[in-house]
Design a protein around this nucleic acid. Sequence first.
DNA 1: AAGTTCATACAGAAAAAACTGTACAGAGTT
DNA 2: AACTCTGTACAGTTTTTTCTGTATGAACTT
Lengths: 186, 186
Amino acid sequence: MSLDQNEWNEQQYEAVQRIRKRVIEVVGRNMELYGVTLSTGHLYGLLFFADKPMTLDEMGHEMQMSKTSMSTGVRTLLDLKMVNKVWEKGSRKDLYEVEYDWYQTFTDYFATQWRRAVESNMQALRRAMKEIERLAEEPDTSEFMAGVLQKDLEKIRQAESYYRWLDRVIDAMEEGQLFDLVPRES
Amino acid sequence: MSLDQNEWNEQQYEAVQRIRKRVIEVVGRNMELYGVTLSTGHLYGLLFFADKPMTLDEMGHEMQMSKTSMSTGVRTLLDLKMVNKVWEKGSRKDLYEVEYDWYQTFTDYFATQWRRAVESNMQALRRAMKEIERLAEEPDTSEFMAGVLQKDLEKIRQAESYYRWLDRVIDAMEEGQLFDLVPRES
DNA sequence: AAGTTCATACAGAAAAAACTGTACAGAGTT
DNA sequence: AACTCTGTACAGTTTTTTCTGTATGAACTT
């Protein structure tokens, strides 16, 4: 994708870059839904169009940003499994390329991020339920307080039920059952 | 939930608040997945436990924050359909309560946020494809450039295919089909 | 109509996050 | 073992976001 080989001219190169840039811009912007920065989104877009795995230095050069930023950006994308580290003998530098299987990216995102949230929420809810039950049984608990506790408990139970459902949704995704409901294109 | 009625004492009130606070903390933190601030998440948690719809002033008082912040926070949650505006005769103030149907909240979130992203991405990809095809047909396009264009086009086609799938997933959610795959608890 | 009470627009302050340059540790080479 | 190269930790700077206080306009009351 560099220009130095004389296989095409400046003008043609610019034309391609212009097209890519617009796509990168939009895709990068919408990647904020995955909780990544705009610039990390752009980095992803850059890697998406790269015709070969890139090094941090190359990214920094293309993005006009510091290598440090590339390092952290790549790490974020790595955590989200949106890019993969690639090994190439001969090169001492780390190489990265995007995960082109976006279905995988999507489900992995849920598997990791949402699962984490579901679990921490469930844990908090269960603890709260225990606390409430303990409190409700104390002798100096007034009628009024018992009522408040009961209402809270009911709300928490409903929330927990929802989280159990969400947990099963994530299971279904991980096991690929979502593709039964909504098939991939051939 | 206020203390001024003498139905319970300071200590009991504190005990309940402590339990709630922990739940609010966790739920609020995980709400960053929905792209909302920590403090907006806390606001949501506050409303979750409120035993009646709240006014901006009440929220501000409980959260120890300005009414302006409450206003913007509530608006964010309203946009996400996580809270509802409630009418109550006699009161001139706006009242808000959380949407307790979290299944609905979840699917609404996808329906609005992800759909928006999918659509804007698809539009960008289609434009890019047209551009590429136009460019590919120009007479001064070298062999090498044609190859580059072809590769880009292929990537974009794959991406578009994914977005069409995602679009159908969102359809399926909106139409409640997700509940066929993963049933709600009774 | 004048007077309240409310929500929010707006500008500025405070806080948080993103980004950079430097420094350094670890792996690889000579 | 000395040297080189690479990725990242860290501190400081810049940019962005969040939050607040004031001001204003709309709706309601008298």
